[in-house]
């Protein structure tokens, strides 16, 4: 009898320590669309509302007036909106770069694909900046050697699209050969390094701008392009840009 009790006791102890094992016998999977047929949780909505209204208020505050509709395709090799973005970068990034390095930005180069929206004539607000620049990219300044600058020019010629530039003027012959290049109003000097401001995205090989990888120095400005555009809109009353002669093909 005593033995039987012990026996049962051991089974009980071991049995209860041993985890019951389960096996999957059936699986059902589906996707549920969150459509407007589902009601709104009022607690969530009430909590979110003040944040939404604050953002809406901030985003819709009028900062400047834009005189005409701008899009990235309104010129062949440069565009109104691209020129604005590149010139704004030159104007607002250069003082920061100068303070950090005692040097000046010579050239700004952004990318055509990075212009994410058009900019209509009329009120300009923070929302505009979010639309044209939804990404978090920051401005960085790279020191390019004469070889790097040449590769940059070759890239611009071969791309044949309106990548935003500032500080540089490039004229092409109709056969796509370079006719003239001036930087900050002076002819290109093929013996010196130039400082090119761009975004960290392009600096890291975005849009195949691999020539930035050969930079001999880099000064990140910790300045988001979107914030730069917002600051630019705050600074300017009127936004007035058109395609111009900075990058053109001469027939």
């Amino acid at each position: 009898m005593k033995n039987v009790c012990l026996y049962i006791f051991i089974i009980f102890i071991l049995g209860s320590c041993k985890k019951t094992e389960y096996t999957v016998t059936q699986i059902e999977g589906k996707q549920i669309e969150i459509s407007d047929s589902i009601k709104t949780n009022e607690t969530f909505e009430n909590l979110l509302k003040p944040y939404r209204e604050h953002i809406e208020g901030q985003l819709s505050e009028v900062l400047a007036h834009n005189v005409r509709d701008m899009k990235r395709t309104d010129g062949a090799l440069n565009s109104s909106i691209g020129n604005m973005m590149a010139d704004a970068t030159m104007e607002l990034a250069n003082p920061i770069f100068k303070q950090r390095s005692q040097k000046n930005i010579n050239i700004v180069l952004l990318n055509f694909g990075g212009i994410r929206s058009t900019m209509g004539a009329g009120d300009v607000n923070r929302k505009t900046a979010f639309e044209i620049m939804p990404f978090e990219n920051e401005v960085t300044v790279l020191e390019l050697t004469p070889k790097g600058i040449q590769e940059m020019l070759d890239y611009l010629v071969s791309e044949n699209v309106a990548h935003p530039v500032s500080g540089i003027d490039v004229q092409l012959h109709s056969n796509n050969k370079i006719k003239s290049v001036t930087i900050q109003g002076a002819p290109l000097d093929t013996t010196i390094n130039y400082f090119v401001a761009t975004s960290d995205y392009l600096r890291n090989g975005g849009d195949r701008m691999y020539f930035f990888e050969e930079a001999v120095s880099e000064t990140p400005l910790d300045y988001k392009l979107r914030n730069l555009f917002i600051d630019y809109f705050i600074k300017k009353d009127t936004i007035d840009f058109m395609p111009d002669e900075r990058f053109v093909k001469i027939n």
Partner: peptide, 21 residues
Amino acid sequence: NLGRIDFYFEEKGIESRDSKT
């Protein structure tokens, strides 16, 4: 969208079901 996957389990060994639906 919200994904939904339902798993049904049975104790191992009892039904000797190795296959699952």
